[in-house]
Design a protein around this nucleic acid. Structure first.
Length: 419
RNA sequence: GUGGGUGUAGCUCAGUCGGUAGAGCACCAGGUUGUGGCCCUGGUUGUCGCGGGUUCAAUCCCCGUCACUCACCCCA
């Protein structure tokens, strides 16, 4: 039995990779325009970083982390998400001392030991963005405007933005108590999962899909009705700015987050076309995280986009691979050697050129040229070579003309640059 | 961690009410002693996921196992 890859960790092959490159290029372009710069951090961190940031009692920390001890006895973990490592780097290198405002983005793999299914894998990829140092509601709106714009430019179909506010350490505990009181009276009506959630994470009961639970919680107190004055004002302004920027959204008062560090504004980009995995991007504000990790008292907001999910939505092979500008077909050893030199010369000029190396029939060479969708084919035969000529065939138009070998390079350069 | 589905050619799948397998696509060659896409002809490729059981005989039935997949939980 040959060796196979690890469950839930996938290869991205040529043919699919073009879609990924497109998604990444668009992100660099869009995020760059909004003033974000890339940061690269390691895939592994000390385990403690994730325990402290994500929350000890979250599913991620309790059962989904790839944690191991290295030879020096340090407990390390393959990052399950990107925000905590970026904040760690931000604090460690004191980036706030250089500039009070940081806008950062990252692209890379994350790891969670879950049971794989459609759109959910053990190694998955995220594009994330973070803004540190601004708590103005305008930045919340701008982050959402950028996220929406990214989805628009990448032509991801059927997504909608949902927003909510989770309050702050001032108002959330009060609300939580009120919710627990409400649920306590109706505990027997809740599903088994929700009875468990009641103690572990009561807010999650609001997010339950079981019809019975939905019915019970229909009259439950909502976070949005219990925000403190500051959070209330912040959320209102976020909505006003979103309206002004013409960003479409709906308020979903039941949206909850899986990570403990979120405060105030939270949001998800959701779709109906991915089965159970309806979130393709998610994020929110985390005003206490940097301080909790031992850094300065600075607010932050950010999001992460799930690349596998976007690629699934766009469809495999949705982005075509680049076409070779030229395919060199030759007949006879002398012509083949001349063609091989020509091939390398053109490639050094940066022009994508291919040829057939193994002396097959002209028919076979043209078949291959057609298969790889070469735009042109250069045919060099014995007699042409002696006259210093060649046939340049334009495949899409099924026509060809005789050109001097010496003038080919300049001709090609002109045609390709002119296009 | 729990439950369902599926494992036959590189891919998508058919099939044998138990007698060791086929199609389409793909690939290769020829039809055109030097010209692609369409068409025609021919050709290559399989431990029928793995292990055990029943049987004269198992790819097919039974048991186990592994893999993939979807869903629950949770999440990007």
């Amino acid at each position: 039995m040959s060796i196979t890859g690890i469950k839930g960790m996938n290869d991205i092959l040529p043919g699919d990779i073009e879609t990924w490159q497109h998604l990444e290029e668009q992100a660099r372009k869009v995020f760059g325009a909004f003033g974000y710069r890339e940061i690269r951090v390691p895939v592994a961190e000390k385990t403690e970083l994730f325990c402290r940031s994500i929350g000890e009692t979250t599913d991620i920390v309790e059962k989904e982390m790839y944690t191991f001890t290295d030879k020096g006895g340090t407990s390390m973990t393959l990052r399950p998400e990107g925000t905590a490592p970026v904040m760690r780097a931000f604090i460690q290198h004191k980036l706030h001392a250089l500039d009070p405002i940081s806008k950062l983005y990252y692209i890379g793999p994350m790891f969670r030991h879950e049971r794989p299914q459609k759109g959910r894998y053990r190694q998955f990829h995220q594009i994330g963005a973070e803004v540190i140092g601004i708590d103005d509601p305008k930045i919340d709106a701008q982050v959402l405007a950028m996220l929406s714009h990214y989805f628009m430019t990448t032509k991801i179909p059927d997504v909608s933005l949902q927003i909510n506010s989770l309050g702050c350490p001032g108002c959330r505990p009060t609300y939580r108590e009120a919710l627990i009181d409400f649920l306590e009276q109706r505990l027997s009506c809740l599903c088994a999962d929700c009875q468990r959630r009641y103690t572990s994470n009561p807010l999650r009961v609001l997010d339950c899909k079981v019809p019975g639970c939905k019915e019970v919680t229909i009259d439950a107190p909502a976070m949005l009705d219990n925000l403190c004055i500051g959070c209330e004002a912040h959320f209102t302004q976020v909505k006003n700015h979103l309206d002004a920027l013409e960003v479409d959204y709906t308020v979903n008062p039941r949206m909850v987050r899986g990570l403990d560090y979120y405060t105030r504004t939270t949001f998800e980009m959701v779709t109906g076309s991915l089965g159970a995995q309806n979130a393709v991007a998610a994020g929110g504000r985390y005003d206490g995280l940097i301080r909790d990790l031992g850094g300065p008292e600075l607010p932050g907001i950010g999001f992460a986009i799930g690349l596998e999910r976007l690629a699934l939505m766009l469809g495999e092979q949705s982005v075509l691979p680049p076409r070779p500008e030229l395919f060199i077909a030759t007949l006879g050893e002398a012509a083949t050697n001349a063609g091989f030199s020509m091939l390398t010369r053109l490639q050094r000029r940066g022009i994508p050129v291919e040829m057939e190396y193994t002396g097959k029939s002209l028919k076979a060479q043209l078949r291959r040229a057609d298969k790889i969708k070469a735009k042109r084919v250069l045919i060099i035969g014995e007699d042409e070579l002696q006259r210093g000529m060649s046939q340049l065939r334009y495949m899409d138009e099924s026509r060809q003309e005789e050109v001097e070998l010496d003038s080919l390079e300049s001709l090609l350069s002109k045609e390709i640059d002119g296009a």
